[in-house]
Design a protein around this nucleic acid. Structure first.
Lengths: 242, 242
DNA sequence: CGTAGGTTTGACTGATCTCAAGTTTGGTGG
DNA sequence: CCACCAAACTTGAGATCAGTCAAACCTACG
């Protein structure tokens, strides 16, 4: 049990932020049927069109979801950190409609959707937490439509950084001012609808303006207030629990 | 009851596409607490930040959801037609995170979220239909991120037209080849991350290419196959029931 | 039949992309 | 521990797609 305690810890903490759970609820989550898998960076966890009836719990590391156009353009739809549940739409839909990829070395638990549906039926508080999680994810997706559709390149990038910092902090993974960013500039471009080249240039602008600082993969938000203003970032859409 | 039969007809048909319902389920939907409202085009039904705990059922007409940047840029997040449930995220979240507006004269039923939560608790099949509806909406939002982020102007517009035609047909509102488009070119621009001027030019391109034809507000899709290819449209993301 | 909202057109601007080198970084095997 | 390699990052020059601004022109409706 100590083992699955470790594995499900981040997820339980996330569910507790979404709804109050009692001991029975927590116990039920701990004993969820699952299969642990450790994968390298860039490993594809699920592909568009898959019919495997399972959800993923990201135990450790980072992942993203994406879709591609028929011309090969790739659009990242969301980034995920430890504790996030992925592929929840498979709970009630037949097919995975996007791909899921680890963007760092990662540990995931594959959970059969049947097990999740059972826990939802038996534990209404868990079901409500999953509802909230799904609705918050939809809210984030809407904010991304706005970001990609109506903001300038610099604003899109700044917004993405703000969101990452905020969610990372909410998940208890560390302070928002300083962190190691798991994604490459190419991935930032794929998430913001820009090219890697343009992301690079705008990142330099932000750096020269003294808003952010970078040393290798270590990022510092030098002026949070200004970054937030540049990115037009209002955390309301995260509903305080993402 | 004949009255509410009429009012809830489109919604019941939509729920039936999402999950099998029995007579009790349908009866419960028909007797849902609600308040009918008829509004003019452009009427604001809900605003970002609202705390009123109610969802909307679009009984007749068309509506859209949108967000705005602090600089005034507006991004439409989705279009809705008769039978669609709006603001479902208020079921489990405290605040409306986007605005909702009628884009044609419309009739809506305002339903207190408490009534919807009750029906979900008592009628699991209805609850599952609402789950599916929410998940499909999230899938559509992801496709929109891809559309706005990674497609050319013409493709974005073509994709939007394909989606509208497909959803309209799925809702039983008429054939996909010919329809009256409820939105203005400005609104198409707001939905695709373009300006009205550019939408106008690309629409003319599509017309000159013989892909679409317009007469006043009446649109004809002259070459569905080509429109679909131009828009990179694969209806899988609608999960056959949107 | 006047008017406001919607559409169309033209000329010009500018943000972002493309292509094509480099350069740095981090990991790996010898 | 070092040499090497692939991936990631940088930089520059030129091309292009879409935006801006401004003026007409429809057309639906009161």
């Amino acid at each position: 049990m100590a083992d699955s305690e470790d594995m499900f810890g981040p997820a339980i903490r996330k569910l507790e932020r979404l709804n109050h759970l009692d001991d029975g609820d927590r116990q039920a989550v701990h004993t969820l049927d699952h299969r642990i898998e450790t994968v390298a960076a860039n490993h594809l966890l699920a592909a568009e069109g898959d019919i495997a009836a399972e959800c993923f719990l990201l135990v450790d590391g980072y992942a993203c979801r994406y879709k591609e156009t028929s011309l090969g353009g790739r659009q990242i739809l969301s980034f995920h950190l430890a504790g996030d549940l992925l592929n929840l739409q498979r709970l009630f839909l037949d097919r995975t409609d996007h791909s899921i990829q680890a963007i760092s070395p990662a540990t995931v638990a594959r959970i059969p959707t049947a097990a999740l549906r059972r826990i939802m039926a038996d534990h209404p508080r868990v079901a409500e937490a999953l509802w909230r999680d799904t609705l918050i994810e939809a809210s984030i997706a809407r904010e991304w439509i706005l970001n990609v559709g109506r903001r300038t390149a610099t604003a899109r990038i700044a917004h993405l950084l703000c969101e990452f910092a905020a969610r990372r902090e909410a998940a208890g993974l560390g302070p928002p001012q300083r962190f190691e960013l798991p994604m490459t500039q190419e991935q930032i471009g794929d998430a913001t609808g820009l090219t890697a080249v343009h992301v690079n240039r705008k990142l330099h602008d932000l750096e020269e303006a003294g808003v952010i600082a970078r040393l290798r993969r270590e990022w510092t938000i030098a002026d949070w207030h200004r970054l937030r203003r540049i990115g037009d970032f209002d955390p309301a859409y995260l509903h305080a629990a993402a």
